[in-house]
């Protein structure tokens, strides 16, 4: 009886700890949405949990009409979507080659591939920027797309998925006279849709949330992305009247769609993150 009571208490404690931590985690996001309905003055009024005097979408209206926000949004979507399409194609193709072919130098090439996943790109930030300015890609969409079209991580991910496809399917397609590319397009691709979905989510998110690179290579309100745009809202305003209300509306509009996407496709997202960790 006593032991069972102790066990019950343990289960209750577990729930209390887990749930309060979870609430604490989403608190800043809730606070962001909450603040997006307040005026900037109200945001900086004690107590911070006081509701706005008037619930209104005024911040959202100003954001859409008074700033280049719609441009930033469109730019972010376009860069992220285009880069995702290329990544899906190039990574699945290369992942296919590494998973299903034997060729000279394969091991060596694979070591280069894996090695390159471990070097953060920030380390070549300045020389890469110099290169961009030499080839006139500063302020050009190409700088947001072309260098990022075939990430090693994505190739590794697709290789893991494609290895699970039975090789007999390829063999029988080959006997039927299919070209290697047709085997890829018609046998492999339809069978690794979950892998492609995973890679698409990770790539889109990475591009959507990236900050330092677009901050360097993009200039002007018509070409910058959302994170850069939101950060410039602060510098474009005078110090005394930084539009925090509108910035919270912008932060909400940047975050909520990807959070919704994540909640819908959580399974794919998590398998993509952990495939390197547990399977090696």
């Amino acid at each position: 009886m006593g032991e069972r009571f102790g066990q019950r208490l343990g289960v209750i404690a577990l729930h209390v700890v887990v749930i309060s931590g979870a609430l604490l985690t989403v608190l800043p996001i809730a606070f962001m949405i909450y603040s997006s309905f307040k005026t900037t003055t109200e945001i900086f009024t004690l107590p911070p949990w006081l509701p706005p005097a008037e619930w209104s979408f005024k911040n959202y209206e100003t954001l859409l009409t008074g700033w280049h926000f719609p441009y930033w949004y469109a730019n972010s979507i376009i860069y992220a979507a285009v880069v995702t399409v290329f990544v899906l194609f190039f990574c699945s193709l290369a992942g296919f080659a590494f998973a299903k072919y034997f060729f000279r130098g394969k091991n060596f090439l694979f070591i280069i591939l894996i090695g390159s996943t471990m070097i953060p790109f920030q380390l070549i930030l300045i020389p890469l920027f110099i290169l961009m300015s030499r080839i006139d890609w500063v302020n050009h969409p190409a700088s947001m797309i072309i260098p990022w079209m075939a990430p090693a991580f994505g190739i590794f991910l697709m290789r893991q998925y494609i290895q699970a496809v039975p090789s007999e399917l390829m063999e029988s397609a080959r006997i039927d006279g299919a070209s290697e590319f047709r085997i890829y397009a018609q046998v492999i691709v339809p069978l690794v849709r979950p892998g492609l979905t995973t890679l698409a989510i990770l790539t889109f998110l990475g591009s959507w949330n990236s900050y330092i690179w677009p901050l360097m290579v993009l200039r002007g309100n018509e070409v910058i992305t959302l994170p850069v745009g939101i950060a410039t809202m602060r510098s474009q305003a005078t110090a005394s009247q930084i539009p925090y209300g509108e910035m919270m509306a912008a932060a909400t509009l940047v975050s909520l769609p990807v959070i919704a996407l994540f909640l819908m496709l959580q399974r794919y997202f998590i398998s993509g993150l952990t495939i390197g960790a547990v399977k090696g």
């Binding site: 609430l23 985690t25 996001i29 962001m32 994170p227 932060a251 940047v254 990807v258 996407l261």
Partner: peptide
């Protein structure tokens, strides 16, 4: 899901929120 949400949230967006907090 609640614990994983920060992983996908834009760093720039949430950092501005923390600035207010």
């Amino acid at each position: 899901a609640m614990y994983f949400t920060p992983v996908v949230t834009s760093t720039v967006a949430i950092t501005l929120v923390f600035q207010i907090l």
